[in-house]
């Protein structure tokens, strides 16, 4: 690998994996909770939550990045607070890239999980309650196993989106090698550099391979889980 990619390029690959990993890890519990709330609960502000969740999908990524900068930048309300109290910064760091990737991928996670929750018959959950299971146990023993294919699909989509996020990331945390320069940002830089086409092509092939592998893996897991849940 190191013969083929320079250390700087290899760094971009590792950074992309790290950014996508943390973006997925944090999106997962929040995404499942929000998907469950949207699918099952009726509460004031439900429609508003639905719109907010889907905004990154519809808005220009640059706008999302700009809003992130306003909120989570060192001068922003949330970013400034975290910086002062915990010494934790998003701005111009890989953590910011992970935040941007997570926010951009969040709608994919919520949609996949929500669809699978809506496919679960609430009558099964009722049956579990009559058998003595509290709400938490029902979720763990009935709902969660039944929506596992949806969660896997959502996770893979989130990871792939995290690997490929460009617009919000470059707006929010800029293009800093070793900090925020993920594969797509490296490709962008290579294309702007004279003689960088070969590098851009190598990175492009690499991201296609990574994406295809992730997809194949998730298909395989989903089929195995579906066979278990499906009964036979």
């Amino acid at each position: 690998m190191s013969d083929w990619l320079s250390p700087a390029e290899w760094e971009a690959v590792q950074l992309s994996l790290r950014v996508a990993f943390w973006a997925t890890l944090f999106s997962l519990p929040v995404g499942v909770t929000v998907a469950y709330a949207l699918a099952r609960w009726r509460f004031p502000g439900r429609e508003l939550l639905n719109i907010v969740v889907h905004l990154p999908l519809i808005m220009p990524p640059v706008v999302t990045g700009y809003l992130l900068l306003l909120t989570f930048g060192t001068q922003g309300p949330v970013g400034g607070f975290l910086d002062r109290t915990l010494g934790f910064t998003f701005a111009f760091r890989w953590t910011g890239a992970a935040l941007a990737a997570g926010v951009m991928a969040f709608p994919f996670m919520v949609r996949a999980v929500r669809l699978s929750i809506e496919a679960v018959d609430p009558k099964l959950e009722q049956a579990a309650s009559t058998l003595g299971a509290s709400r938490g146990w029902i979720f763990l023993t009935v709902t969660l196993p039944l929506i596992l294919p949806g969660i896997i699909a959502g996770t893979v989509l989130t990871f792939a989106k995290g690997m490929g996020e460009f617009g919000a990331t470059i707006t929010f945390v800029s293009n800093i090698p070793g900090q925020t320069q993920t594969i797509p940002l490296a490709i962008d830089l290579a294309l702007e550099t004279p003689g960088g086409e070969a590098l851009a092509a190598r990175l492009a092939v690499l991201s296609i391979v990574l994406a295809a592998t992730a997809l194949a893996l998730s298909e395989w897991i989903s089929r195995r889980v579906a066979a278990r849940v499906g009964g036979t």
């Binding site: 009558k123 099964l124 009722q126 049956a127 579990a128 309650s129 009559t130 058998l131 003595g132 299971a133 509290s134 023993t141 009935v142 196993p145 039944l146 278990r228 849940v229 499906g230 009964g231």
Partner: peptide, 30 residues
């Protein structure tokens, strides 16, 4: 009382067995 505190055995018209569990696991659930 919440349903799960009533300790009743409810046999539903459509069975409502848990599809992701074996018969043995279904039996042991309650």
């Amino acid at each position: 009382l919440k349903p799960h505190r009533r300790r009743l055995g409810y046999i539903f018209q459509e069975g409502r067995l848990f599809p992701h569990m074996t018969v043995r696991q279904n039996l042991a659930y309650g």
